[in-house]
Design a protein around this nucleic acid. Structure first.
Length: 849
RNA sequence: GCGGGCGUGAUGGAAUGGUAGACAUACCAGACUUAAAAUCUGUUGGGCGUAUGCCCGUGUGGGUUCGAAUCCCACCGCCCGCACCA
């Protein structure tokens, strides 16, 4: 009997698949298409277990679809532009291009042994001029369509990476990559007009039924739609030309409780006043400088600067309110000015107490023991759905919910000519300019006479120059001796190229479309896009729930507007699945300096290092180099084979949750695969043709397994599918059936395992004497008749507690089941007469006494 | 603060409102072996009992239901997203 040797088997079958070109995606009229895509990797140089899990899931889907008669597109590429390449060039010398392409070659080399069913003929990297040239063409079309524009803007400047960041890339006031405190600078930048599509991007979320609700909700919150009233307070004796302050509020029902106006330090009025008020200027400067981190904001006192100006309340001209420049008012949201209502907003209340401003409730709750904010209590902010008593509403005293009162207030104010109801979105335009080298050059030219001129399409791609240096910070394109010099595409005069490159999120916002025609001489080929789009199943990490997925949704729309995608691709990803991380325990000892020292899993055996030192085990966390809790897929593959790694990352945990990598788990997976191999070898070697073939139980279990595993694979229930395969394997191992039945069951087992462990499955298929490849063999079908057992076991409950079991024929009439059930639980009934008998067919009997 | 999710054995987890703990890990026991490894078999939620069995049990407390891990309400704990957003 031969032994299971993963290395040999896996190499052989990978070669066979390559030679047969079974994963090459082609059109076919008689098969439905299926496009499965995993979020493409950044070429850091090494694949990690997270990649293995992600791509294995996609591969299971792809292989299952292939076997169920679909025309599958399953491509792979590289998200290859970005800062790490430049950082590497700065740190260790060399060139980002070289570094990137070497990494790609390395990672491809690590990925191929996984045996993924990828159409490698479609592979590309976003740093290929062939790709980014088309991205430039797309940019020019978007520019023409008004989807890109240039403006002067206060931007988030990352002082370490020396570049601008999008709002989405600022996390807690720090750069998402560098972690540096972000500064505010005013620069001329390119923007995608994504906010114009806010409503569309929001309302279309409803149609994404096969996206996780969590992701849809996160996007909804990010877009941040709010409905409110925008109106003006009349300014008394304002500076030159200023006679009003526009404010926006979502709570116009509290307008009669207003006690001050707060404006942002960046508000035009504040800036105007600043010029002849050094004290105010100092205050504003201090606020602008202030940290925007969570802790800083938490601790930051609500502070204001009384401008001395007063406004009139729109509904009572004798009512004057002071105008403060307040440190908590943001210029970026609404109008950059608010009215403060301390009775119904805790922040406004704190501010009012500090500056001794009046506190007036507009509504109160019904409870008697209510401690009003006027008397030192907290601000009263009930849910908008709660009914409260309005004491200072617009229609006199009445009981209303906040929602009703807000609507009524908007109507009333509009009727009185005080402002209008408006809808606002938190989503802001996407700034795409980056002052970096390793990115897609923005294809425009600055001409002294013509201004900013789009490059001519025939000049594309605008290639990055290779001869650049990284010895000093900043953008090497800026200081390149000749690259900038060009001629104006419009007037032919000498002109300068734009040296900003595009945010790398642009690259990943349309790659899924490029995969449908990776070598087209336009961004996409409409016929191919029409055939392959949309992505039927997209799989990736939850960390991309907002940025990448929102940008991609925007791009799909932009590409439709510019004629690069068909209408049906307006939402590019029909279904989205967000998989969990692969985690591992952390092994730590305390070093001489009292600091923790981390140890790699391969250096720890039974909780001890090689020298016998005991390590402290810290609970499982995301694999990270700094904590050394990393398992290298390449090592696992060489130790156990790819099938073991694939099997393990799919088992144990549901795919959307984190899975903990354990050595014992990997060992167990490996043993199981070897066991399956052995069982099938034995079946092939034996000849029990004379054994009673009547072991129907085996074939029944086979059909049930086909049913359960198929359902599991289709519904991302990989862990449950694998559990079922363990059980079916046990049935097969113990079966006393004849060879023919066993061979049939073994064949089904191989097929059901084939999406997860494709190499072993091919080997078993071949051992069992089947011709061709299991990868392309039709998926087994469950026979409905075999799923129903002739006799079934019914638990019998008395008052909801299980007291007995009865064996009944599948089709026994209800009244007979009742009779049998009552008989079976005579003792538990203890003479009592059943009041009611509930028979749930095929499930349970419950007797109520 | 706002929004969302989760809580089941020693562990990962399973369970269309219908036998809670499938499957796996770990542990324990047995078979094979001179021995070990490998392999195979069995046990394992808690408690009571010689036993047929009985009681308890899905974070806590209540509710709906013939029947609740699952649905509803409140609370506790953990996790995630957003956040001086007016």
């Amino acid at each position: 009997m031969s032994r299971y040797t993963a290395a040999e088997i896996e190499a052989n079958w990978q070669k066979a698949w390559d030679e047969a070109e079974i994963f090459r995606a082609t059109h076919s009229a008689d098969k439905p298409k299926y496009y499965v895509l995993e979020m493409f990797p950044y070429p850091s140089g090494r694949i990690h277990m997270g990649h293995v899990r992600n791509y294995t899931m996609g591969d299971v889907i792809a292989r299952h679809k292939l076997a169920t008669g679909h025309n599958v597109l399953h491509p792979m590429g590289w998200d290859a532009f970005g800062m790490p390449a430049e950082n590497a060039a700065m740190a260790i010398g060399g060139h980002p291009k070289e570094w990137t392409y070497n990494n790609i070659a390395d990672m491809r080399g690590q990925m191929k042994p996984l045996g993924l069913s990828i159409d490698w003929s479609r592979e590309f990297a976003t740093c290929d001029p062939e790709y980014y040239g088309q991205q430039q063409a797309l940019f020019l079309d978007m520019l023409k369509a008004g989807l890109v524009y240039r403006k002067n803007a206060v931007v988030n400047w990352d002082p370490i990476d020396m570049t601008v960041l999008a709002n989405e890339q600022v996390i807690d006031g720090k750069g998402w990559r560098s972690g540096a405190d972000v500064e505010r600078r005013e620069l001329t930048q390119w923007f995608f007009a994504i906010s114009d599509m806010a409503e569309e991007l929001l309302s279309a979320l409803d149609g994404l039924e096969n996206w996780p609700a969590k992701v849809r909700l996160m996007q909804e919150n990010w877009i941040g739609k709010s409905r409110g009233l925008q109106f003006a307070f009349g300014l008394i004796d304002g500076p030159d030309g200023q006679d009003r302050i526009e404010v926006y509020t979502t709570r116009p029902d509290t307008l009669m409780g207003a006690s001050f106006i707060g404006i942002s330090p960046d508000h035009p009025l504040a800036k105007q006043l600043e010029s002849d008020n050094p004290e105010l200027a100092a205050f504003c400067a201090e606020v602008r400088k202030g940290g925007t981190t969570e802790e800083a904001l938490e601790k930051a006192e609500k502070r204001g600067f009384d401008t001395g100006l007063r406004v009139r309340h729109p509904f009572d001209t004798s009512w004057e309110l002071p105008v403060y420049v307040a440190n908590f008012v943001l210029m970026e949201y609404g109008t950059g000015a608010i009215f403060g209502c301390p009775a119904h907003d805790q922040r406004d209340l704190e501010f009012s107490r500090k500056y001794d401003l009046p506190v007036v409730s507009t509504y109160v709750p019904f409870e008697a023991e209510y401690h009003a904010p006027e008397d030192g209590g907290d601000a009263y902010v009930p849910p908008k759905t709660e009914r409260v008593l309005y004491t200072r509403g617009f229609a006199g005293e009445e009981v209303q919910t906040g929602l009703e009162a807000i609507d009524a207030a908007v109507d009333f104010c509009e009727g009185q000519g005080v402002g209008q109801g408006v809808t606002k979105y938190r989503l802001r335009d996407w700034g795409l300019s980056r002052q970096r080298y390793w990115g897609c050059p923005i294809p425009v030219v600055h001409c002294d006479t013509c201004g900013v001129v789009p490059e001519a399409k025939e000049n594309l791609p605008i290639r990055l120059p290779d001869d650049v240096t990284f010895d000093i910070p900043g953008n090497p394109l800026d200081r390149h001796p000749t690259w900038r010099q060009t001629t104006c595409p419009r007037c032919g005069a000498d002109a300068l190229r734009e040296t900003d490159t595009m945010d790398t999120f642009v690259d990943s916002s349309w790659y899924y479309a490029r995969f449908t025609a990776p070598h087209a001489t336009t961004p996409t080929d409409m016929a191919e896009a029409e055939y392959w789009m949309n992505v039927d199943q997209y799989i990736g990490g939850i960390e991309h729930a907002i940025l990448h997925l929102l940008y991609s949704r925007f791009f799909a729309r932009a590409m439709q507007i510019t004629g690069h995608l068909p209408k049906k691709a307006i939402e590019p990803f029909n279904a989205l699945f967000t998989q969990g991380m692969v985690t591992h325990e952390i092994y730590q000892t305390i070093g001489d300096n009292g600091r923790p020292v981390y140890h790699l899993p391969e250096d720890v055996t039974d909780g001890r290092l090689a020298d016998g030192t005991e390590v402290q085990i810290i609970p499982s966390a995301k694999m990270s180099k700094s904590k050394k809790n990393v398992v290298d897929p390449a090592q696992i593959i060489s130790a156990y084979g790819a099938d073991t790694a694939r099997w393990f990352v799919l088992s144990d945990s549901p795919p959307e949750r984190d899975v903990e990598w354990t050595a014992s788990g990997a060992e167990a997976a490996s043993k199981h695969l070897a066991r399956v191999y052995r069982i099938v070898s034995d079946i092939v070697a034996s000849d029990d043709a004379d054994a009673p073939d009547a072991d129907e139980a085996l074939l029944r279990d086979m059909h049930k397994a086909i049913q359960a595993v198929s359902a599991g694979v289709e519904a991302f229930g990989f862990n449950a599918a694998i559990a079922r395969l363990y059980a079916f394997t046990a049935t097969l191992a113990k079966s006393t059936a004849g060879t023919a039945a066993k061979r049939q069951a073994a064949t089904a087992l191989a097929q059901l395992m084939s999406p997860m462990t494709p190499h072993l499955a091919e080997e078993l298929w071949s051992m069992l004497g089947h011709s061709g490849l299991i990868a392309t063999a039709p998926w087994p079908q469950a026979d409905p008749a075999m799923l129903i057992d002739a006799a079934i076991t019914l638990p019998v409950q008395v008052n909801g507690k299980r007291r007995a079991e009865i064996q009944v024929p599948q089709d026994m009439p209800k009244d007979q089941i009742e009779k049998m059930a009552i008989e079976a639980v005579q003792r538990a009934l203890d003479g009592a007469t059943p009041k009611k008998v509930i028979v749930v067919p095929g499930r349970i009997v419950n007797i109520v006494v």
